[in-house]
Amino acid sequence: MRLVLTGGGTGGHIYPALAIGREAAEKQPGTELLYIGTSKGLESRIVPSQGIPFESVEISGFRRSMSMQNVRTVVRFLQAFRRSKELLRRYKPDIVVGTGGYVCGPVVFAASRLGIPTLIHEQNVVPGLTNKFLSRYASAVAVSFADSLPHFARVGNAKHAGNPVASMVAKADKKKGFASLGLAPGTPFVLAVGGSRGAKAVNEAIMEMLPGFAGLGEVHLVFVTGERYYEEAQTRLAGLPAELSKRVRALSYVHNMPEVLAAASLIVSRAGASSLAEITSLGVPSVLIPSPNVTNNHQQPNAESLASAGAAVMILEKDLNGESLLASVSSIMRDPARRERMAAASRGLGMPEAAETIYEQMLQAIRASKRRR
Rank of each mutant, 00 (worst) to 15 (best):
C104T: 11
A264F: 06
L244Q: 03
M168S: 12
I206N: 02
S139W: 01
P16L: 02
L181G: 05
H220C: 09
S135M: 05
L87G: 08
G310C: 09
G156T: 12
G348Q: 06
V202M: 08
Y253R: 09
L288I: 07
G30F: 02
S65V: 15
A192M: 08
L3D: 01
N157A: 14
A303D: 01
V254G: 01
N70Y: 13
E86H: 07
A263I: 06
P241I: 08
V268D: 02
I279V: 13
G239S: 10
S331M: 15
L276D: 01
L363H: 03
L5P: 03
D319Q: 10
P93I: 02
G30R: 05
P117M: 00
V169C: 05
G217Y: 06
M66E: 11
L34T: 07
R334S: 11
P53C: 04
T235L: 12
I59S: 01
S112R: 13
N297W: 04
D147P: 06
E43P: 03
A250P: 07
G98H: 06
E323T: 15
A344C: 10
I52N: 10
G105K: 02
A233V: 06
R89S: 11
F54W: 08
V284H: 10
G215L: 09
S56A: 15
L5F: 08
A201D: 07
P285C: 09
D147H: 13
A205Y: 04
A263T: 08
G348A: 05
V155G: 10
T6V: 09
G186P: 04
I14P: 00
E304D: 12
E43F: 02
L114D: 05
L87V: 10
R63T: 10
M1D: 05
A138W: 07
E317V: 03
M66N: 11
P106R: 09
P29K: 09
R372N: 14
S331C: 13
E232Y: 01
I366E: 02
L183S: 07
G7N: 12
A242S: 15
K318M: 08
D94N: 11
H121N: 04
G61Q: 10
A263D: 06
K159Q: 14
I46K: 07
R136A: 14
Y230I: 08
R83Q: 14
T280D: 04
S60A: 13
G11Q: 04
V75Q: 14
S346A: 11
A327R: 15
A312Q: 00
N124S: 07
A214G: 14
F81V: 08
P48W: 09
V57K: 00
K159S: 13
E86S: 11
E26S: 14
A355W: 00
A170M: 10
M333A: 06
M1W: 06
S275H: 02
K132M: 12
R372A: 15
V107H: 02
M257P: 01
L316G: 09
E122M: 08
V71F: 15
Q300F: 11
H255Y: 12
V190E: 04
A161T: 12
R22N: 11
Y102F: 15
S65E: 15
L34A: 10
E55T: 05
Q28A: 15
V96L: 06
